[in-house]
Design a protein around this nucleic acid. Structure first.
Lengths: 210, 210
DNA sequence: ACCTGAACACCGTTCAAGT
DNA sequence: ACCTGAACACCGTTCAAGT
């Protein structure tokens, strides 16, 4: 509870915070233990006192990126609304830092970080008396879709930023509807689709007698 | 059409095929240009005549892994069935090689490989006169969910294989229903959910007058 | 057309030793 | 408790030169 006295955890968090700054400024490929050490004015080997290895450090950075998810109020929402809100909130978190989605994607897959949507979604579904099983499945679907789609999206953004002159796409009469992939609109549509699917599952479950 | 005469593409494909073998046997972290060169009896620099860089080589390997998707017949299926079949077929492809899902996940995100489900799904939805927009959104949702979930699943399998003694999980009375994550059953449930969601989207679209 | 040899500019991690 | 110094065992990539 008393945080200012204890300086023990401080420097560990400082390392993760500096890593996040470097990530945002130079990207994941340049987030090396050596660069990070230099930015902290320390030898690379010093980092291994705070973290057992690089993946653990990256997991800590992932948690910083996902921190806003914990304070996303999903109370008094319908199940449908909760899926859409939590999903798009997660997308915002991942887009907030350069290469954020790639970093979180791997930490998540390695199992070094817990689902950033599970708790919020289960809270809502429980209030609506939805069985946890259905809610867990939906939470997994939302998480994997959002992380995958946002990773893809962020990569395209980065590519466009490098080759600005290559394919300007020229938002003409048909606006952003060109290109091959999903934009923000498609993203919202997909979340709506998943929410619909969850509702159908719930209804079917109830008609079978809970 | 005549393949046996031309030896030009042969060696390029040989490189990708050997890379796939090394991937399956030693895993992605040990799939280095140097190991691959050694396995081919060649200098590392020789690989750069066939591929501009490692990512391009990995994309070629991804395509080998995804090749069976092209010959998955989705004809005369309902939209619902097609989503489930294509989704679980993709999962099988990714699980067929060690670290297959991780490799394909990154090639996909980098945009170096095209969607392994889009073509099949669009073929079916068109026969059922579903607007392409809905189908594209569903295809994205299916792809990202399957790749993400399978990546997660494959990583857990690998972890369990290393620490076999750590948590044997001991499939007791409640069978495989323990643990925190999604198993094969949850995977199928999630696909069903997405299929349901697509059906609702289609129905809503039609009631608005196509 | 396809490959070698040699180099460049890096990596993550360990570990004895310092303070 | 926290860090240095020095090393180990690697990486991907380039490029002149060979055949």
């Amino acid at each position: 509870m008393v945080a200012s006295v204890n300086s023990r955890r401080r420097s560990r968090d400082d390392v993760a915070e500096m890593a996040l700054r470097l990530l945002d400024e130079y990207g994941l490929p340049d987030l090396t233990m050596r660069h990070l050490a230099t930015a902290l004015g320390v030898q690379p080997s010093a980092l291994y006192w705070h973290f057992p290895n690089k993946q653990a450090l990256l997991a800590a950075v992932s948690e910083l990126i996902l921190a806003p998810m914990r304070e996303t109020p999903a109370d008094d929402l319908s199940v449908h609304e909760a899926v859409r809100l939590v999903g798009s909130r997660l997308r915002e978190c991942l887009l907030a830092y350069r290469d954020g989605s790639e970093l979180v994607s791997s930490s998540l897959a390695l199992g070094l970080v817990s689902s950033p949507v599970r708790a919020q979604l289960l809270e809502v579904t429980r209030r609506h008396e939805v069985p946890d099983g259905q809610a867990e499945v939906a939470a997994e679907a939302v998480m994997h879709f959002v992380v995958g789609a946002t990773f893809h999206e962020q990569q395209r953004l980065a590519a466009d930023q490098l080759g600005l002159l290559a394919e300007p796409v020229a938002p003409g009469p048909d606006g952003a509807r060109a290109g091959s992939g999903a934009d923000g609109g498609d993203f919202a549509e997909a979340l709506t689709m998943i929410a619909h699917g969850l509702e159908v599952s719930i209804a079917q479950d109830r008609s079978r007698g809970n």
